[in-house]
Design a protein around this nucleic acid. Sequence first.
DNA 1: CATGAATGAGTATTCATTCAT
DNA 2: AATGAATGAATACTCATTCAT
Lengths: 204, 204, 204, 204
Amino acid sequence: MGLEEYRRSVSEAKRASILKAGRSNFLKNGYSGAGVAEIAREADVSTATLYKHFSSKEVLFAAVVTDAYVADDHPDTPHQTDIEEFFVGLIARYLHLQYDRQINALVRIVIAEVPSAPKLAHDLFENFVGARYRAIEHTIGQLIAAGKLKPHDVHYGARFIAGPVRDHFVWPALFDADARLPDDADDVVRRVVRDYLKLYGARD
Amino acid sequence: MGLEEYRRSVSEAKRASILKAGRSNFLKNGYSGAGVAEIAREADVSTATLYKHFSSKEVLFAAVVTDAYVADDHPDTPHQTDIEEFFVGLIARYLHLQYDRQINALVRIVIAEVPSAPKLAHDLFENFVGARYRAIEHTIGQLIAAGKLKPHDVHYGARFIAGPVRDHFVWPALFDADARLPDDADDVVRRVVRDYLKLYGARD
Amino acid sequence: MGLEEYRRSVSEAKRASILKAGRSNFLKNGYSGAGVAEIAREADVSTATLYKHFSSKEVLFAAVVTDAYVADDHPDTPHQTDIEEFFVGLIARYLHLQYDRQINALVRIVIAEVPSAPKLAHDLFENFVGARYRAIEHTIGQLIAAGKLKPHDVHYGARFIAGPVRDHFVWPALFDADARLPDDADDVVRRVVRDYLKLYGARD
Amino acid sequence: MGLEEYRRSVSEAKRASILKAGRSNFLKNGYSGAGVAEIAREADVSTATLYKHFSSKEVLFAAVVTDAYVADDHPDTPHQTDIEEFFVGLIARYLHLQYDRQINALVRIVIAEVPSAPKLAHDLFENFVGARYRAIEHTIGQLIAAGKLKPHDVHYGARFIAGPVRDHFVWPALFDADARLPDDADDVVRRVVRDYLKLYGARD
DNA sequence: CATGAATGAGTATTCATTCAT
DNA sequence: AATGAATGAATACTCATTCAT
């Protein structure tokens, strides 16, 4: 038991180390630019060990991407009484995560691999981008049911909020590796949410 | 003279042929997936000739991209009296062009090359994506000046219209090479425009 | 003592298990195709244990080969009165053993390793193939002494009988892992023996 | 034309050089032991050039084998009046070629690769080993038709002659890389042929 | 000016063997 | 004595680019 546990802890440490090195290398060099040997060296691990943990470069990259998104999606629906605050908080949180975790850069790489690894891109979109949409849609649905929003198509509503924000802050960042989140980002988010609520808020 | 001219015309024909083959190959395989030898073969030209015209793969790719958006649209702002129809027409035209000319695929590749060719991406964004924003902003500005829209930040306004549309139809297409424009696209565009006009239209 | 004995019996069981797994794996995949890790897994043993028993892949292979022919046949020369029946029985028995025990596959692998393990091949030929020749030669010698065969070189005689049979049924099987012994094999053997006896039988 | 011809001659020289280096390397190291890079170096050629000529290691090996057998099969059926001389000449020629061209060593390698490259072995057996059988069978058929041999199954006849010879001189050589053709080889061939003719020769 | 054969550097992946527990 | 995670060396194949005709 002691032996097994020891082994597992070592193994997991190596796995984490590989993930970290992989992330940094993919971000720096892109998918095809990254080298498995270099990642292994940076992770202080032999290539064979790397392959024990991740059966191919593609699998490693998918793990890096997943790892970046994961633990990200407990928007834990804080039951805030004020709808505006709630939406602003939700969207702003996504936005800051997007920058803090360099998800734009990862998304860039995934997009680059669409022709050669369509499944990876599809899965990313489904599981991560899609998860965020679904969270927003779910919330909208609940608010409609609670009578706090006018009835409307949640699919449309989610994109009506997220679209302008993405156009402001994500879309340009896809074309510029050095893009930084502007200081007024939260203000813009608030403005979008207010406009949305003017149209779809329930009262008067 | 005649001889020289003949030579030049032949040379330009080859250049055009290479560009065309390059475009199709880059679109199909992505940047790193595309092969110079294959492009040369498709263009019915030797690799050496290709290199006479374009000094490297990267230069060729930049030329392909430039060529694609240089030849692009002058949406020539048709002066329509009805504002809704006008906006719907403008946005929908952009949207259809985006799909018809495989601009999503092109954008995908440019995004992929952001780390290695930042200037190219920057230029594309400025000259191409930016041109469209500017066209919308210009129109909004004129309509505000004409009293047909409430005064508001044109930069914000343009993204408020374009964002939801892009979220619906462009964003998913970046992750899926086989994405097709849904039949209801124009309806969604109209709905977005109407929502925008409800908020920013000049009076009831 | 009891403990030591128990340990030894476990150890020998593992050794046997490794040998069995090794044989099956070498037969299926050839020498370089076989994998030590896979053999260990099939034997339900760790690689380290395997290496405790056999210090290298080559040593393991040699053990597999030796084990295969050590356990081999004692064709126990049944004293049959009829010479034709006797020869047919002897040769046919060898032939069926060759197929039943997958000796062709084993021979294939040994032949493959001639450049890297010449001694192994030499020993196999001496002890295994040679043993069969010697059995035939010995029999011929006895029959000549008994006046039942014309005097002739036993070395030549043995190859005169065995050669055609091998050409029919062994030679092709070396080039085809899926070769099966044809139904008419025994008929061919009998025909060869009859032809041999026509030439070298003692008279009428 | 001059240019094309020049290129072709250079190209063919390189091809021949690769084949030669390949042959020597395969003979020395076996199939999996041989290294493409090393072969290229020995041939004074880049690996890419090697791959231009032979699209894979397997293809190169097949070419080496083919090259060894080829030009070997114009047994040009010398219409010799004496049947014994004719058969002895035919069989002895094959036998000497087998040794002179180190075909035994090549055959060893092919046999080694049966599990991993069954098609190669099958083709070798069909096209080369088979070709020799067919040549003998064809001859026997003609001699039967001409009344010079008793009617009998040519398939059986060919193996009845070839088998003992192979058992004497080829079979042992498969297990011993240093095997040399004994001086009395031709005598043994003659003896086998005579025995065959005693049984299947036409007259009296 | 055009050719296409030649280059050689670069890379993902495998596997026999060892070693800390 | 047994484990199995870790090793690192080794290798087939590709591709942007150049150069002799």
